[in-house]
Each structure stands twice: as C-alpha cells, then as structure tokens.
Amino acid sequence: MTAVRIVVALKQVPDLVEELEPSPEGTDVDREYITFVLNEFDDQALEEALLVKEATGAEVVVVALEDSDVDQTLYTALAKGADRAVKVTGAGASGGWLDTHSRAALLAAWLEGQDFDLLITGVQAPDDLDGQLPAIVAGRLGLPHASVVVSVEVKDGAARIRQEFSAGRSAVLEVPLPAVVGVQAARQAPRYAPISRIRQTMQAGGIEEVAVEAPPPASGFTIRRLYPPEKTSHAEMLTGSAGDVAARIVELLRAKGLVRA
C-alpha cells in the first residue's frame, strides 16, 4: 500500500495575549499593530499528523492561505517534520479578515487537485464567525468528517478517531479515508523545532506557492459592528502587596467557613 497522504491546514491568528481594538470602520479588529501567531489548535493538528507519520510512514503536507507571517509558520512546520509546505495565494487569500466559507472555498479548490487521504485541521480558530472550516470543507468535498478530535490513528484505509464530548466523555469512531478531522488536542504536547533547524529550512526555501482562483464571497451576512463586550459585572480588584491581597482572600474564604484556622 502506498503511504497515506495527510494535509494539515495551518492558520495565522491574532495573538490574544495582546490588546485588541476595533478598527476605525468598527467591523474588524485593528490589524496594524497586532502580532500574528499560529492558531494553537493547528499546532495540535500538526502534532497529531506527525504522530501518524511516525507510526505509519505517512506523508505530511502543510498548507496555509497567504497570511501575515505565515512563511515563518510553514518553515517551522517543515523543521518539525512536515514533508512539504504549500502556500495558497490568490485574490482574497490575504489582507483583512476573510470569512470561513471563503477560506474553505479556497482551500477546497486547492484540495480538489490533490491526492490526499486525510485533511487534519485545528478544531477552530478564534477569529471565525461563520463556523469552523473542517466541516465546511468536508461538506464541499462530500467527505466524512469529525471535529473536536483528540486522537487519530490510521490503519487499513480507515482512521480510528476519538471525538470528545462534554464531561470528559469521548466516542471512538471509525471513518474510511479520505476524511476530514478537526483536532482539539494531540495525543501529546506539540513538539518544538530547534531554531537551527528552522533556519536551515528557511535557507533551503521550499515553500511551494500555488495561486487559486478566488471564490465568490460566501458568508452571506454582514458584520454591522465589532466591539468589546460591555461588562455587566467586573471583579472588585484587590490591591496592595501580595501579603495584603493574600490576607483579604483568606478573610473571604474564612467568611464562607472554608478556612479552618
């Protein structure tokens, strides 16, 4: 049997640690000063793909739409063990916020020309508004899919996956390939690539650029405004030294009878 081909979709997202402000038009965040980082769930998706590669000799291709600082992310993925990196360019593939249906259409257009067995994506990205890409791409391509997945094992033309529900319950499913999986968490913490390896991959180049026809705009809605939530309540902030604050907290717990002494 030929090696299983896995495509992992990677996406850059605003670093949520930073302050986000609405843009002057009020329908997007102000993108000028924010840093973009790889979506944390995509790092998990890549890890899970690399685990399948280690177990089965699968080929791992990472793909991303052209985006802020995406090259760095693709080189890092190569340094971690991905075999190929593809950057999809084309009208609508870069710039400001792009709805998920349009992104899914671009990726699906590229995927249609590919021979692949498994598309692994992150479960979600923090900047999606019109849904999560894995189910949308699967819908477009007519493939079986599962999201919120915490392990993927490939054997005999099928994927055995574990899909997580609430309260720590999960279901084991078997899905024939080709299929689409949205990963919540890999079976182990995502690996790190040494900086020296990342430098090497950068010097070697090796990001393939593919232009894809722009799909028609697709979300079907308009964003009227984007705004920070009005706080209906806010914590009473405890100030002073660590000793002062600790004393206040102990007092609060004692008032509820939760501290013995």
């Binding site: 479960v123 599962a146 529900f165």
Partner: peptide, 23 residues
C-alpha cells in the same frame, strides 16, 4: 456550539446552502 453542533453546523450550511453564524 457543542461537539455535535460544531461538527454539524458547517456541513449543514453547505448542504442546505444557508449562512451560518457561530458562537
């Protein structure tokens, strides 16, 4: 936006050709 909801919403929006708003 449960597991089942996240899994279904996107593909239904394709199958039924309807806009989807999440979260």
């Amino acid at each position: 936006t449960t597991t089942a909801g996240l899994d279904l919403a996107g593909s239904l929006s394709v199958a039924w050709d309807a806009p989807l708003v999440s979260y």
